[in-house]
Simulated assay, not measured.
Amino acid sequence: MRVETVLLKDYTTLGVGGPAKLWTVETPEDLKRATEAPYRILGNGSNLLVSDQGVKERVIRLGGVFQTYDLRGWVGAGALLPLLVKEAAEAGLSGLEGLLGIPAQVGGAVKMNAGTRFGEMADALEAVEVFHGGRFEVFRPEELGFGYRTSRLPEGGIVTRVRLRLKERPKEEIQRRLQEVDQARKGQPKKKSAGCAFKNPPGQSAGRLIDQLGLKGLRVGGAMVSLEHGNFIVNLGNARFEEVMALVRRIQEEVPLELEWEVWA
């Protein structure tokens, strides 16, 4: 196990966040020790906005045995989802194509039921192992209350491993599906962002609503609504937490959208 003081802006895709004690755990025993005090779980930091003041709790990141995977067995929650999508396609295993382009770790993708209009993480799950209350327990997906960008894990629960529900398909068929998903996701910004900022209202697109209101390019300090996609807020270089939140509030004054990000403040 490694414990160090870091700036969380270096561990989030938006590039915003202050200091914290980062506990990188590599074994179940490490995890039990790290959770003996108040904690937060950090995945790939791709759906996360962190205060410039940082956080007081321990920040736990899964490494070691939690990053190993077997596509036909158990996959560690610390494994990178883009790698799994790629490896599954190469192995002729279908079920993850709809998750192409999501820069998450598996555990974070499960917690928020990450996905696109082509599929969600819950669709690809057969079983989920969760650490909570000092023990490891395996759940069926239907026990975890998955919904649109949400789940109902046990309180304080940490996803540690999953078994995937994948099917053998011709590799050419899988590649065609990946190309379809990739084409549909073209136009997403290349600048630093935390992914889609807001949840889509039922039957509508948050990005389209923001675009129709003429809010693309709206800027507060170093934070700006992307010119390429209305549901992305990008960091132009040195955006601060309050600038990002002020921009979020400006958008919500115009249209009542629910924030999709997790906020640590």
Results as ranks from 00 to 15, higher is better:
M121E: 02
A122C: 12
A122R: 06
A124R: 01
L125E: 04
A127L: 07
V128F: 01
E129T: 13
H132Y: 14
G133T: 07
F136P: 05
F136K: 10
E137K: 12
V138C: 07
V138R: 06
F139R: 04
F139C: 07
P141N: 00
E142S: 11
E142L: 10
L144K: 00
G145E: 04
G145R: 09
G145C: 05
F146H: 02
Y148N: 09
R149N: 03
T150P: 00
R152D: 10
R152I: 07
P154F: 08
E155N: 13
I158R: 06
I158K: 09
I158V: 06
T160K: 09
T160V: 01
R161I: 06
R161D: 05
V162Y: 07
R163P: 01
R163H: 03
L164D: 02
R165Q: 04
L166G: 02
L166E: 11
K167V: 14
R169C: 13
R169L: 13
R169G: 12
P170D: 10
K171Y: 10
E173W: 06
I174F: 07
I174G: 00
I174T: 00
Q175Y: 14
R176G: 14
R177T: 13
R177S: 14
L178S: 06
E180N: 15
E180H: 13
E180T: 12
V181C: 08
D182K: 15
Q183C: 15
Q183M: 15
A184L: 07
R185T: 01
K186H: 14
K186I: 10
K186F: 11
K186Q: 14
G187H: 11
Q188I: 13
Q188Y: 12
P189K: 00
K190W: 13
K191M: 14
K192Y: 12
K192D: 00
K192C: 13
S193M: 06
A194R: 03
A197G: 10
A197F: 06
A197S: 10
N200Q: 11
N200F: 05
P201G: 09
P202S: 09
P202H: 05
Q204T: 12
S205C: 10
A206G: 09
A206W: 03
G207I: 07
R208G: 12
D211E: 13
Q212T: 11
Q212M: 14
L213A: 05
L213M: 12
G214W: 07
G214L: 10
L215G: 10
L215D: 02
G217A: 11
G217Y: 01
V220K: 07
G221W: 06
G221D: 08
G222I: 04
A223E: 08
A223G: 06
A223V: 04
M224D: 04
V225I: 14
V225W: 03
S226A: 09
S226C: 03
L227I: 15
L227H: 15
L227G: 15
L227T: 15
L227F: 15
E228C: 14
N231L: 05
F232Y: 00
I233N: 07
V234I: 08
V234T: 05
V234W: 02
L236S: 11
N238T: 14
N238H: 15
A239V: 08
